[in-house]
Nucleic acid binder design. Structure first.
Lengths: 159, 159
DNA sequence: ATGCTTTGTGGGAATTCAACCCATCCAGTG
DNA sequence: CACTGGATGGGTTGAATTCCCACAAAGCAT
């Protein structure tokens, strides 16, 4: 299904209406059907943009696991937690449609999460299976914290 | 495949457009196909430049493995980790193409990492399997710190 | 219902930046 | 002392990105 992995780091700026241009290098391999995509809240200062089909796969897999656990009675006493999870899942993502030349309008509710103002810069990052949009600050913080463990993670996934 | 090892230490200056000339003594043995190369962030103050083919041996092979695993669905439940790895891979290296007489344009994002301003000097070092570009400061610091252990390392690798 | 305001979309103009190419400068050499 | 090859600087072109404005759609108040 999805063949190409997404890589690359780009600096982009938001225009006065909270739009970012997604670079062609990342947009093409994403292979969006008429611009249909899913935008998700990843962590404060970071959003992720998914091919709608791939997102569905990802969600289905998680939901299947959850369903299995419920049926096995393993979450018996924790139904309220499941309910809470369901609630969070609802706000965590939203369908979006990229306009003409691959421009993404960051919707209300996601702007605050990303903590950006119109005109601010943003980093657009290829994250193998999706594209991420970072507040520059959050990005460098993340790198400083996470880069040291890079090779361990790399080995784990490749071996 | 690659036979010649790269050695030599050269001082070069960045012009006002962030270009460095790679000395012919290093460029020739690198044997780049139409200037195709890979630039990687080695450590703050140091970038490394690789023959694209050699880099592929080093890294792309692993990425192919990863890609294969994903397509086989073997990382279905671990997309998070793949995503995380992808992120880190994205900042770490970048395809570059050396222009006319082996001049390298240091791309946005690598300039800050190397901590250079236009017009600054840089050291261009043959590191056996690749060429490194150092901020002069970082280079002497590294030498001061590392040189004492040089002979031990030398013996270890040669014996 | 109508007009005003806010928000999203499209696209053109302006600007920035890298690729390309050539000119100059300098050192080493015959 | 002219010549050669490498290093550096700079102009021009062309593409990509940003800035900005006009238009459309939706929401709100009168």
């Amino acid at each position: 299904m999805e063949s190409e992995l997404l890589f690359g780091e780009f600096q982009r700026s938001l225009d006065d209406r909270y739009r970012v241009g997604i670079p062609a290098d990342l947009l093409e391999p994403m292979d969006l059907q008429s611009g249909q995509a899913v935008l998700a809240k990843e962590r404060p200062g970071c959003l992720s943009l998914w091919n709608a089909g791939l997102w569905r796969q990802k969600m289905d897999a998680s939901i299947k696991v959850l369903q299995g656990k419920i049926q096995a009675g393993r979450l018996e006493g924790r139904l309220n937690e499941v309910q809470q999870l369901g609630r969070l899942l609802s706000t965590r993502h939203r369908d979006v449609k990229l306009s003409d030349r691959g421009r993404l309008l960051i919707p209300e509710g996601f702007r605050e999460f990303l903590q950006v103002e119109p005109g601010d810069d943003a980093m657009v990052i290829g994250a193998a299976v999706c594209v991420e949009i970072w507040r520059p600050n959050a990005w460098v913080d993340y790198l400083n914290q996470r880069m040291p463990r890079f090779s361990k993670l790399f080995d784990k996934l490749v071996e």
